[in-house]
Structures are given as C-alpha cells and as structure tokens.
Amino acid sequence: MSGRFLTVFLATMLTALPIAGHAAPSWGVGLHRLTLEDPVDHQPMSAVAFYPSWVKRGDTHIDLFRIAGREDTPPAPGRFPLIVLSHGNGGSPLAHHDLATALAHRGFIVLAVQHPGDNVDDQSRIGRFSNLYGRPMQLSAAIDAVGQDKLLGEEVDSRQVGVIGYSAGGESALILAGGHPELQHLRQYCEKQPDDAEACERAASLAIDDDVVEAAPDSRVRSLLLLAPLGLMFGRQDLADVQVPVLLYAGAEDHLLLPAENAAALARRLPGPADYRVVPGAGHFVFMAPCSAEMREAAPQLCDDGEGVDRMAVHDSLNSEAVRFFSQTLTAPQTAAQL
C-alpha cells in the first residue's frame, strides 16, 4: 500500500466518523513555497501556501517569523477553498502567518504572494502604476498557478476564492473584486490634507511606466477581508462593481491610513453592506501577526500597539471571525470522505 494511498485511506476513515457537536475538523498546517511568474514582466515571483495537512507537528522559523506549521508535509486529502493574501507596501507574505494558519487549520488553503518590487527586500515598483495594477494581476496569476502545483493542485478548489488585503493589499483586493481606482480622488484628498505625508507623497510621485496594464477583475473572487485598507482612490461609483461580501477592520488610532478617509469611507461607499469592525486604541500594525522576540528586536515600530491594546487578544478574535466569514461566503471544504 503506497504512502499516499494510506494517507488518503486513513483520512477517509476518520473524516467519515461523526464529530461531536458537528464542529469543523481541525487539521495540521503545512507550508509550501511556490515560484510563480509575475504577469507584469514575466520574471519569477514567490509565494507561500498554508494548507490543511494530515501531519500535526512542530513550528517553522523563516526569517523573523515563527510559524505554526511544517514545510511540505502531505496535504490533507480533500478539496479546499482558496484564499489569496496581499500584504502591505514593503511587506512580507508571512506578516499575517497566524491568520493564515488559523484558516488552514479549518480547511482553507491560503496563498500569500510576495509582490515583486513592493516587498521587504525590494521597493523598486512602489509609486508606479505597474505596482497599482500589477498587484491584483499577480493575485489572479497566483490563483491560476496554484491549481497546477504538484503538491496542492489536486486539493485546491480555485473556482471560489476569498481575498485578504492588508493596507495597500486592501486596495489590490478591491481592484480584483471590480473596484476602479481614480488618482484624482487621491489628489483631491491631498489638497485638503496636505500634512498626510504617507498618502500625499505617493500622490505626488505616482508615475505611469511602460509596464502598466489595467488589471481586470477576477470573477472567481467571492468575498473580501480588508485589514486597515488603503481606500483613498475609490469613490462610490468606483466601487459599484464590487458585488461581494466584505468584512472590514480598522484600528481606531491608525495614523498611517486614517480610518475616516479609508476604512470607514469604504464601508459607506461599498454597494453592499460591509461588516465594519473598529479595534479600540489600535494602530495600523496591530493586524500583523503577534511579534516574535526576533521581530521585536529588529522592528520594534511594528510591534508597539500602545497602552491597553493586547495584540494576542485582537488576533484571537480576528482569526475566529475570519474563519466564520469565509466559511459563510465560500464553498465548504470537502474532505476525502465527501468526495
């Protein structure tokens, strides 16, 4: 009996057993690094998948992150919904690893893309239209590619997709779901709020480059989770085609992307009712995973949440709500026993 067949056989027998209280199964978590093709310039692009695994063991250290999962363990047999994750400007695909592992535990495959030219190691595309439109194109390309992956291709259900977008990743998620950003909105905002250097330096320098191609919406996207999203470029009409459920979070004390002009404005302007949550006292970085000791030493500014804010408690609630939201808005995971 082959190892793969034995794994499928055992999983089928166990998932066929009744579960007390009808609770969803809790899998182990596997990590898998992928090399994809950037649709902007056809150069290599990396991503990390978090997936339900039959193997429950240990942690993995990657860079400054301590992740509750193991690399390339056998995937749990079944068909699991796909969630793509878009990090913020200059960020990392691992910055939300606890959210990704919480979803993988409950039967979702989460694919976190490292946006070329806009990540912790390379910021060469920040402030260019090829980045504004390239990011959502990269997410669509990742959805295409994971279905062909040798390890996960048989387990992923890429017909219905959720998107998690943090900060600038929220803008990318909205474009992927049908939003149409307009630079004029950003310019008008900066005429009223010239002291907002974070946003308005971007407006002054945003450049059209040779690689720019306007991104098309992806009809596979069924729901969005937006965390402290960048929303300055979207008016009400620009969001009219975003016809999917949205769960939206902001920190009440976010001084990088002011909630009144970004998250709260999006909640008012989206065509359908957004489930809008505000975390009291929290700043912009509270939605990144709780910091390891290495992260606190290397980047303390990303770890300081202010007096009275408990990032662990915030994430316990956020992760639970994300599982609930995607369980309601995407096709339920199918275990081997159900196929």
Rank of each mutant, 00 (worst) to 15 (best):
R220D: 08
R268T: 09
L247P: 01
F287Y: 12
V278H: 00
L248C: 08
P290S: 04
A298Q: 14
E253Y: 05
R277D: 01
G235F: 11
L225N: 03
A240P: 00
A250P: 01
R220M: 12
D238S: 14
A274V: 03
A265L: 11
A267M: 05
A215L: 05
F234A: 01
A274W: 00
A250L: 09
L258H: 04
R220K: 11
A252W: 09
D275V: 07
P290N: 03
D254Y: 06
V246R: 10
L227E: 04
V242E: 08
H255Y: 14
F234L: 03
L239S: 01
A265Y: 08
A282E: 06
G281A: 05
V279Y: 01
L232Q: 01
M233E: 14
E294T: 14
P229F: 02
A274Q: 05
G235T: 13
V279N: 00
L256M: 13
P273G: 14
P245F: 11
M233C: 10
A215N: 07
L266I: 04
V242M: 02
L257H: 07
A264Y: 02
G231R: 00
A216M: 12
P245K: 06
L266Y: 04
E261I: 00
A274L: 09
A228H: 04
L224E: 10
Y249S: 04
L258I: 07
R236S: 08
S292P: 08
L230Q: 09
P273D: 15
A263C: 07
P217L: 04
A216R: 15
Y249I: 01
R268M: 07
P217A: 11
C291P: 02
A298G: 12
M233S: 13
L256E: 15
V244D: 11
L258F: 03
P290Y: 03
G272E: 08
L225R: 06
L224A: 11
L230R: 10
P245D: 10
P229A: 04
G272P: 00
N262Y: 02
P280L: 11
E253N: 15
R269H: 05
A263F: 03
P217I: 03
R236D: 07
A250E: 13
A293S: 12
L224N: 09
P229T: 06
R222S: 13
A215R: 05
P280Y: 11
G283W: 06
S223Y: 11
P217V: 11
A263Q: 09
R236K: 13
D254M: 02
A250M: 07
A267H: 02
R269K: 11
S292T: 15
G231Y: 01
L230H: 12
